[in-house]
């Protein structure tokens, strides 16, 4: 008997430590599973469903299902990637994701996943939301129209910054991120540019001011490397 445990990911054995989720184990082993609301420093959220895999024939979120010996996991299949593409399309039409006019373009995880999964059209009818910008803070701008409700800012502000600046409000299709201040404005909180929450947004919703095009379009993170290539390389470097 071997001294480590493995599960099968798309037919390849992946080693894991007890307590790791399938996503953590796969990423550490250099096997990319698409994910959006996941962040290695925070507890799993399991809301975006991009990391949906099949474990022993049943659907599960790779970020929440614990790795167990002998599991048969499929991830990179036409069926699952097709579902992921549909999830991305729905995220794109729910917000205002005009990439050519967004300063996050090229550093945006939503866009990078759409590249990686070859999403060529948003397909569905757009919502064209009309949520007011919050430019009240001297150092940070919020465009709520681009929010995908991954709750990373909520988690970062609560768990790392200890400030609880953000929260999710509303239910179902009316869910949205709000700012915890009497006026609802970011300027009336103790939010600071040095906060973790100021730099964690995977899309262009929370943007530090005055750095927009310091790195030109075309030279940005995901312009140079695909998001999957980057994740796999990171695993190799850490190993």
């Amino acid at each position: 008997m071997s001294d480590y445990e493995t599960f099968l990911l798309d037919g390849r054995p992946v080693r894991f430590e007890r307590g790791q989720t399938i996503l953590e184990a796969a990423l550490a082993a250099g096997h990319y599973i698409p994910n959006l609301c996941h962040h290695p420093e925070f507890k799993p959220h399991g809301s975006c469903k991009l990391c949906t895999i099949k474990v022993n024939g049943r659907y599960g979120s790779a970020c929440t299902v614990k790795a167990m010996p002998g599991q048969e996991v499929s991830s990179d299949t036409p069926e699952l990637n097709g579902n992921r593409r549909v999830l991305l399309q729905m995220l794109f039409v729910e917000g205002s994701h005009f990439c050519p006019g967004c300063e996050k373009s090229g550093n945006c995880a939503l866009q990078a996943l759409a590249y990686d999964l070859e999403m060529l059209t948003p397909h569905y009818a757009h919502f064209y939301p009309s949520r007011p910008l919050d430019a009240s803070h001297p150092d940070v701008l919020i465009d709520f129209n681009r929010c995908i409700m991954c709750e990373l800012c909520v988690r970062a502000s609560r768990e790392v910054d200890g400030k609880n600046v953000f929260a999710l409000a509303g239910r179902g299709v009316a869910s949205h991120v709000v700012v915890n201040s009497p006026s609802g404005k970011l300027a009336d909180t103790d939010f600071a540019l040095t906060d973790k929450a100021a730099h964690i947004c995977p899309v262009g919703a929370i943007l530090p001011k005055r750095v927009g095009f310091a790195v030109p379009i075309g030279s940005r993170t995901y312009d140079v490397d695909a998001i999957s290539t980057l994740a796999e390389r990171r695993a190799t470097e850490e190993a």
Partner: peptide
């Protein structure tokens, strides 16, 4: 063939759609 952002998703002109 839909060529470019505007044909594919309305593009920047569609930014008037919430008005």
């Amino acid at each position: 063939v839909a060529l470019g952002a505007c044909a594919v998703n309305g593009g920047l002109p569609a930014q008037r759609n919430h008005l």
